[in-house]
Design a binder for these strands. Structure first.
Lengths: 219, 219, 219, 219
DNA sequence: GGGTAACCGAGACGGTACGTCTAGTCTTTAA
DNA sequence: TTAAAGACTAGACGTACCGTCTCGGTTACCC
């Protein structure tokens, strides 16, 4: 990831990492849809709700499309029609690809870095964290799924962080010799690795202290 | 993981992280049994070879116990008898839990840190890297498997790194206010995350530059 | 079937066998409707053509309404609206319910029998035979479909044959003690059974010799 | 079918019709099976019983392997392992391929013919008749299934009947110019066609009178 | 050297889930 | 109104593996 992030950092126009397969994003196809029965919003909600209810009791890897369909009172095809894989479905369900809140501007580089990391940590607190980490883990099994995961979740965070670091370097707030891509890998990697190591949830202590520890890395 | 690693670092006697479930490691039961047909070394080798041959063609997640048994000319039970899960089997096969080479002594804290990180990177270069990362990913699905993975692979690296950092802090080589556990998370996390992001192998550039980047973190 | 055929034979006014469920034949409702968008002749042809093209490659039982609709570029509902089931559709497509050619009159009973059987055999020669037999086979699955098949294909042949035999008996050309219904069953059954036994098409030899063999039965 | 039956009649050694695909008959492979867990007789019975119980309520075409497996408390694979298709399974279940009772000898050709037809009719009386006819119908969908049906059910009857007719012709009891194969087609075809025409069961009247009607055909 | 115990291969077992296919119905817009 | 398009629920298909079990047999040891 880092090299791509790096390239991106230097040329910020690039929005899509091209070393990762793209998930087929149906919603981008065309806004003007007219003929045929329209997608049922009721079914969509039933599916998403079913996923969320099930995640209360069991691990993401224990959800089966079959069970979700049954619980949602929906045909399996309806799920397969709208989501390319379980990863995309669950990420949508837990709303992880939440609105890309614009950063407050006019802040110092350091403050922007802390803000961005805190935002990421907030997204991973509670049950969500474990679920998302499971998604990332499951995505390892197939390049398609991996692309799907990155595009819908990780990419935007990487871009934001890389941009902040690059700017900070330019403004002299961060070390000039810092490798942006590696910094991104370390900062997000530290969090991901922590969650993968067994803790079911991020504890408050970690959330509080991690951003500052990360700040030390870039200065 | 970091808090446990931290605790461990302060009290180096702890060998087993106790926030992780222990995998049942049958071979440790040890009481030198005599009766009964002894384990067939031939079968063990056949299984391990089959796994390694199969890993040349396919992803770790695409190996099934069934296929391994067939390829090795072995009953499925023989595999289940000796390995608790696919993770343990594959880790043994690729010999990832390689000998815990003792560090050269009388080095500076910085040199020891670089040496340890390089050792870890060396272990993950080539195909091995992706395979091990897949193991880590699959282990997320079950606490047992996760314990198994940590115990047989990750734990020793964490302990070594934590010890080096603690010593470096004591000797004044590293920052006193550095959080050892978080540093461990970031250093290994950066590598793991990089591999999980899509690169099939660690490129030479990354391997060369990562250790120094990590060194900057702790100073 | 035979008892109904028998009853019919004695009272020739009966056109519909009443031991068979009637298929709902929508096109018979007929009351010259005016309002609404008219049925698209283009679609009708597209559907019929699609069926015929598909029958070149595959068995009738391998055609699905879904596939036909897709191939014809037509909604499934359009098919369901106009044909009660696959059987009716395919029979129409291969035009099996071909015009009920009136028999030449003023012939002897034997000649009329031969002519009728030959007509039936002609209808079943080539690919048509297997397709029609498959229709008959599939119709076994549901009384509705069976009724549909009989009404649109088999009934008229049975009636004709029964009438010829009855007349022949009255004129002294055929055995007086002959059971008309059983004779019909045997004559058509022999052909149907032959086709169901595996031959993909009726061979010339069979077509040539069968009518005379049947004639021996009734004398 | 008839031509093959004819060839067979002239050369009675031929037991297998070769214009039909052979079903893979696993039981013929080898009697001496040693290794591996043996087939569970309990499961076999459970499956066969489930089929029979289900046939009381529903048509053969409405049985699904899935439902049978569930009702029998058995894995689907267990069914697929032992039966090539639903046809073979149902035929075994209703025991249609019942013992090939040897004919009483020293009878006249006519008596033997009547006996054979009555035996066939007896097999098809009651619910069995409709079920078997449905099997024959379903078998039309695939050459494999058709072969399976013929081999396990129809073949022996055809052979017996053909042999009786040939003998009768030789002994002067039946017409010399009779085409054996066509006679077989007509005799069995009459029955099959009758059942396919809608009657749910063979009525007593038909059973009583059909054999004599058939006898007239061959004289 | 016979008994006993754990091993071995083979492969059948009850299950779960997969992703695809089809049936027949429902809900839109377009003609 | 009806046609056409296509989404909907439902559920079977046949396959792949899971982890367990049940065989016949083998290979050590221990007495």
């Amino acid at each position: 990831m880092s090299s791509a992030a790096n390239a991106r950092a230097s040329a910020l126009a690039d929005v899509i990492r091209d070393d990762l397969p793209k998930a087929k994003v149906k919603k981008d196809e065309k806004p003007a849809r007219k003929v045929g029965r329209p997608r049922s919003e009721k079914s969509r909600k039933a599916i998403v709700n079913a996923v969320n209810r099930m995640l209360l009791h069991k691990q993401a890897s224990d959800l089966s499309i079959e069970a979700i369909a049954k619980k949602a009172g929906v045909g399996k095809t309806t799920i397969y029609r709208w989501w390319p894989d379980k990863i995309a479905l669950i990420l949508e369900a837990i709303n992880a690809n939440g609105a890309n809140v614009p950063q407050p501007v006019h802040k110092s580089a350091g403050e922007r870095l802390l803000w961005q990391i805190e935002r990421f940590l907030r997204l991973l607190r509670g049950r969500n964290g474990k679920v998302i980490i499971e998604m990332m883990a499951q995505a390892q099994a197939s390049p398609d799924a991996l692309g799907s995961f990155y595009e819908s979740f990780m990419l935007v965070h990487e871009e934001n962080l890389a941009e902040i670091i690059e700017n900070g370097k330019g403004a002299g707030a961060f070390r000039k010799d810092l490798d942006t891509a590696m910094a991104v890998d370390m900062i997000y990697g530290g969090i991901v690795y922590h969650l993968m190591s067994g803790s079911d949830e991020l504890d408050e202590d970690f959330i509080t202290r991690y951003p500052n520890e990360a700040l030390r890395l870039v200065r």
